[in-house]
Each structure stands twice: as C-alpha cells, then as structure tokens.
Design a protein around this nucleic acid. Structure first.
Length: 336
DNA sequence: GTTCCACAGGAAAATATGGAGG
DNA sequence: CCTCCATATTTTCCTGTGGAAC
C-alpha cells in the first residue's frame, strides 16, 4: 500500500512547497543580500505548531544553496541542543570545526572565539524551536557575527521577546519578522493530496479520508501527516489494503469532535453569535443572518464584517454554504 | 435576452488593541 | 500617566458574478 514512506516522515522537505509563497518570497529577498556577501541578519519566524515554519526554513535555505553554492546551512534543533554549549558545539560541528573540542574540557569562550574567527562561506543558521533554548545569548552572538545569518524559529514573537534582555530586544526589534498562521483545511487537503500521490499506491486513500484528516487536524500539518501515518500503519497491521473511512475512524476516534470544540472555543462573541444563529434557525441567507445578529447584539458590526465571519466559520467547517450568489444560504455542519 | 440585485471577497483606510518606553 | 509603535480587526469602497425577475 505504501510506496514511499519517506514523504510521510516528519522533516521531509517536498520539492514544491505549497501555500507559503508569500513567506518564501519574504525570506528569499531578505536572505539574498547575505548570499551575495552582505553581513548576516536575523530573521524571526513565528507561528503555531504544524504551520510549516521548519519546512519553509529548510526549503528556503535549500533554494539558496542551489542558487548560490558557496553558502552553508546549519539546521539546529534547539530542543535537542538547548544548552548554550550544545548549541554552539552543534554549529561548529556542522561546520567541521569541532574535531578537537570535548565537552567539559573546552571553555565556552573558546567556542565563541572559533565562531568569531570563522572566515569561510556565509552560513545560515536555523535555530529551530528557539523557545527551548536555556539562554538567549546565542542570538546575540550570531547577530553580531557578519558571516552568520540566523533564522529564529519560535511559536510566539511576544513570548520570545519576553525572554530577551532589553539590549537584545532592541537589536532584534528591527529584524525581519515572518509570521505564519495555521493552514486552512483546504490547504491541508492539497498538501495531503500531494503526499498521498507520492507516498501511496493509487486508490488506497480516498478523497473523503483526506478531507476528514484535514478537518480534524485543525490547521496543523504535522498532526495531519501523523494521522495519515497512523491510519496507514493501522491498515497494514489489520490487513486492510486501503485506508477507508472506517479504518480512519478506528485509528483516530473522536478526533473531529475535539477539534470542532477547539474551533468553537476560538470564536469571539460576535462570531459565536453568528454561529449560534445559524445553528438555531437553520439555512439562512446572509441578509437574514445579519438581521438576527443585529437584533441580538448591542454593538453589532457591519455586514461586511459578518460576511468575513461567515467565511471564517466556513473555512473551519463549522458551517456550510449552499448556492453560489443570490441563492446562497448557510447552515450549521451537524456534528454527528 | 436583459436588467437587477444580493452575493463574495479584494484593497485600503480607519480604528481598536496591546506592549514598550518615556 | 501619556505617546509611540506594531499588529489585529473593522469599516468603507469597490468589482465581478450569477440567479431571479422581467
């Protein structure tokens, strides 16, 4: 059933990265001068888990290396190398400068001065899961070294900045910030489709299974791919030769309801009111929805805003639209 | 057909929000 | 406390579309 398990692996970087065009362009244009010899800068990439931060970082450095061969990339998983020593050591190690360094017998300063003395090709350092670092000094050191550019990958910018001392804050304040948001279910569907096409034999994963996984993953590509992997393993173990709805159901019970609840919890008062109205009064036109909403709220927003809510609710599959233009109505997606 | 109208959704301006620094 | 700044949300203005009424 599985043709190429690699494409389902965490850390797999596809040839064609989907849905991150704007972020890629931003990163490329920021790193381009560095590749051409300008001093390195710091770039901060933030976003929730599974939003594609790591894969985008790897992709952009891959592209850069293709275009400018004499540039190096070091990918550092800060969760694994969370102490300052290990982080510096890993970087030196990747650069082949750590052969005679031994833990315990080599002082910190020696590591730093080696980095300072480094005069080879420019290096892009990806500090993945940077919020895991015990010490933020590494940001400071890399920021001040012209031969190094750093991609600081973290969950939240504010949380990251909260840990920095003020001097470092003001230095990094001006660096480029690339925020990423979670994928929409549609985006996840197309990501999964490509992986399925490469990873599985034909006709082993049906479209509605993909849709269901995308739905349940709540914008987290890592979770989505994990579910697909889990369902595949389950199918193999149980002797099925394709992943059907039932197989998926058995491999991940009640995932959908949890995610649904999480989505509902994330709504603000206005959005929830709109959702409640649709749930209570069944299929309604936008105009009718707005009239209910206007009557119910003491500080109603404009129709255009409510229409944005409708898009958002649809995006997260809490409601569905039927009809294209004048005949369009919305109704709640029943939660089975 | 043709016209009309409610719709979707983009772009940009306006406004609210939240944190940093004075 | 206020001001500045970045970001997020909302409003305003708008274009294009297709079903409905004529």
């Amino acid at each position: 059933m599985i043709r190429d398990a690699e494409v389902l692996d965490e850390g797999f970087v596809p040839n064609d990265l989907q849905h991150r065009d704007a972020e890629l362009t931003h990163l490329e244009s920021t790193l381009r001068p560095f590749a051409d010899g300008a001093p390195g800068q710091s770039i901060i990439i933030t976003g929730p888990t599974g939003a594609g931060k790591t894969v985008t970082s790897k992709y952009v450095t891959g592209q850069l290396t293709d275009a400018v061969p004499n540039i190096q990339t070091v990918h550092l998983n800060c969760w694994r190398s969370h102490t300052q020593f290990r982080a510096f050591y890993s970087i030196l190690d990747e650069l082949g400068l750590a052969t005679d360094i031994h833990r315990g017998s080599t002082p910190h300063d020696e590591l730093i001065s080696r980095l300072e003395a480094y005069d080879g090709d420019p290096v892009v350092v990806i500090l993945d899961e940077a919020d895991q670092l015990d010490s933020t000094d590494i940001f400071y050191d890399l920021h001040s070294l012209p031969k190094f550019a750093q991609l600081i990958v973290a969950n939240e910018r504010d949380q990251l900045f909260g840990r920095l001392n003020s001097r470092l804050q003001s230095r990094l304040q001006s660096s480029e910030h690339v925020p990423m948001s979670r994928y929409t279910p549609e985006e996840l569907v197309s990501i999964l489709e490509v992986r399925v096409r490469w990873g599985f034999e034909e006709e082993t994963v049906s479209p509605d299974v993909i849709e269901r996984i995308a739905d349940a993953a709540a914008g987290d590509a890592r979770v989505a791919l994990g579910m697909l992997r889990r369902a595949a393993n389950y199918a193999i173990r149980e002797g099925h030769d394709e992943i059907t709805f039932d197989v998926l159901e058995a491999a991940m019970p009640d995932a959908r309801e949890q995610i649904r609840q999480r989505n509902v919890d994330a709504l603000n008062d206005h959005q929830r009111t709109v959702f409640d109205i649709i749930r209570a009064y069944g299929p309604l036109s936008p105009q009718d929805i707005y009239e209910h909403y206007e009557a119910k709220m003491s500080d109603p927003n404009q129709l255009r805003t409510v229409k944005s809510y409708l898009s958002k609710l649809t995006e997260y599959r809490l409601i569905e639209a039927e009809g294209s233009t004048r005949d369009r109505t919305y109704r709640a997606v029943q939660s089975q």
